[in-house]
C-alpha cells in the first residue's frame, strides 16, 4: 500500500478541483494539512474542518490514520433523549466538548478508506451524507444513514429502511 499513498500535494490539488470552497492550511504537525470550508448537508450549510497527515512511523495521531472531520458551526446539538444514537450519531466521542467530536464516516475494519484514496472523492461525499442524515436525526432522533458501531459488530439498518 505504501507505494500508492497519495501525496499531500495530490490531495490538496484534488480538493481544490472537486471542492474549491474547502481551503487548505498547513496542519499542526509535520506533513499535514487542514481544510476549512462550508459544506451543505441536506439544506443547511455547515462550516467544517478536515485534518489529515501522512502516516509517520511512531505517530499515532488519529489524523494520520484517517481524515478527521469536525463540524465547527453551527455546532452539533447533542440530544440525550434521541430514539437512536444519543447523544450524537456516529462520532468518535471526544471530551471536553463532544460537539467537536470527529465524525465516523467509514468502517476502518472494512478497508473502506486508505491513504491511496482521494479525500475529495471519499471523505467529503461521506461528510455530506453524514450531515444530511444528521439533519434528519436532529428532527426525529432517528438515524437514516445506516452503519455500525465499534462494539456492535453487526451491520445496523435503520428501522425505517425500505
Amino acid at each position: 500500500m505504501a507505494a500508492s499513498v497519495k501525496s499531500l500535494r495530490a490531495q490538496v490539488q484534488a480538493m481544490a478541483r472537486d471542492w474549491p470552497q474547502l481551503q487548505p492550511s498547513r496542519g499542526l504537525g509535520a506533513r499535514s494539512v487542514i481544510w476549512f470550508g462550508d459544506l451543505k448537508g441536506l439544506s443547511r450549510t455547515f462550516h467544517i474542518s478536515i485534518e489529515y497527515g501522512l502516516p509517520i512511523k511512531g505517530r499515532q495521531d488519529l489524523y494520520r490514520v484517517m481524515p478527521v472531520v469536525r463540524v465547527l458551526r453551527p455546532s452539533l446539538t447533542p440530544n440525550w433523549e434521541a430514539e437512536e444514537e444519543a447523544p450524537l450519531p456516529h462520532v468518535y466521542f471526544e471530551r471536553p466538548d463532544i460537539r467537536l467530536s470527529p465524525l465516523c464516516l467509514f468502517d476502518p475494519k472494512a478497508g473502506e478508506w486508505d491513504a491511496s484514496m482521494l479525500i475529495s472523492r471519499t471523505t467529503v461525499g461521506w461528510t455530506i451524507r453524514w450531515l444530511a442524515a444528521y439533519e434528519f436525526w436532529e428532527m426525529t432522533g432517528r438515524w437514516i444513514g445506516g452503519g455500525r458501531h465499534e462494539d456492535a459488530g453487526v451491520e445496523k439498518e435503520p428501522e425505517n429502511a425500505a
Binding site: F106, W126, R148
Partner: peptide, 13 residues
C-alpha cells in the same frame, strides 16, 4: 454512485 457508499462507524456513548 459518484462517491462509493461507506459504513458510518464510531463509538457508542
Amino acid at each position: 454512485p459518484a462517491v462509493k457508499p461507506s459504513t458510518f462507524f464510531g463509538s457508542k456513548w
